[in-house]
Design a protein around this nucleic acid. Structure first.
Length: 272
DNA sequence: CTTTGCACCTGTTGGC
DNA sequence: TGCCAACAGGTGCAAA
């Protein structure tokens, strides 16, 4: 699930319940995530109030006075708020107990996610230090995309998914943005004109912003035990629509493989 | 430095 | 119905 809009939706959902609350315990039922969850996490966090919940790329950052808890949802992770005595279900690996009553519950069937503790300025954490600009920030625009694409033989779609160039653009939104910009995913990055980069940067910002808005408007169930957290069924222009007609021109959407991942495009609306 | 492919893990889907 | 292969939205890392 988690692409950037879901991560940001999650942040907005949990932030009001976390900020100002004090961690009273941490229960780790399964600590084998992408990296081992620090065994001393309960001792580290107990008694500390959450100062803020921020996001960098797809990392959620829970800030405390003495350090930062980095949380990544990987491919299948989710966070929700439940009463602390709610029985955990399968794959509910970690609870942050807040004020002894509420649990911030981390679920991740595939365990590709992460929960790491960092002391010191979090922007210097090795996982964050080399990241490119936020897609919705002013530091990412047509110029940065144009410069980043010069001399690059890789495809524009793979360049978009390179975290050094821009963060938070995963497989779905790389495909959707390229459709909106009218550019084929397989085109060499170095062949993009400045005008292409302009349309693409605008498309990325617009699509991500719209998806976050949609997530916010259907935001629910971060508090409580019912159903999945407040994600949303998004309708896509090309992603997952192989052999289906393009909503714009009726041509059949094509699917190709790029770097072991599926890409989708409309042969008419994305001429090259 | 860039590019490519693998690895981590479980669950779902589709074909036979 | 059962079995098996292929695939799934992330991303760090090693190797070429």
């Amino acid at each position: 699930m988690p692409e950037l809009p879901e991560v940001e939706t999650t942040r907005r959902g949990v932030e009001p319940h976390l900020t100002g609350a004090t961690v009273t315990d941490v229960v780790v039922r399964e600590g084998r995530l992408r990296w081992p969850v620090p065994p001393a996490l309960a001792a580290t966090l107990s008694g500390l109030p959450v100062l803020a919940v921020r996001r960098r790329a797809k990392y959620l950052l829970l800030e405390f006075a003495s350090g930062t808890l980095l949380v990544h949802l990987g491919m299948s992770g989710s966070l929700r708020l439940v009463a602390a005595d709610t029985p955990p279900q399968k794959h509910d690996h970690i609870d942050l107990i807040l004020d002894g009553r509420t649990a911030l519950r981390y679920r991740d069937p595939r365990r590709f996610g992460a929960m790491l503790w960092h002391v010191g300025p979090v922007e210097f954490h090795p996982l964050l230090a080399e990241l490119g600009p936020e897609p919705l920030g002013d530091a990412f625009d047509a110029d940065t995309l144009y410069r980043a694409s010069r001399g690059r033989t890789t495809s524009i779609k793979q360049l978009l998914m390179d975290n050094h160039v821009v963060v938070g653009v995963g497989n779905i939104y790389a495909n959707e943005s390229l459709f909106e910009a009218g550019i084929r995913p397989g085109r060499a990055a170095r062949r993009l004109t400045h005008a292409d980069c302009e349309r693409l940067a605008v498309a990325i910002k617009s699509i991500l912003a719209r998806a976050i808005e949609a997530g916010g408007s259907t935001l629910r169930d971060f508090v409580g035990a019912s159903g999945q957290p407040g994600y949303f069924q998004q309708t896509y222009a090309v992603y997952g629509r192989a052999e289906e007609p393009c909503h714009t021109c009726g041509s059949l959407i094509r699917q190709i493989r790029q770097g072991q991942r599926s890409s989708y495009y409309c042969p008419h609306c994305q001429p090259w």
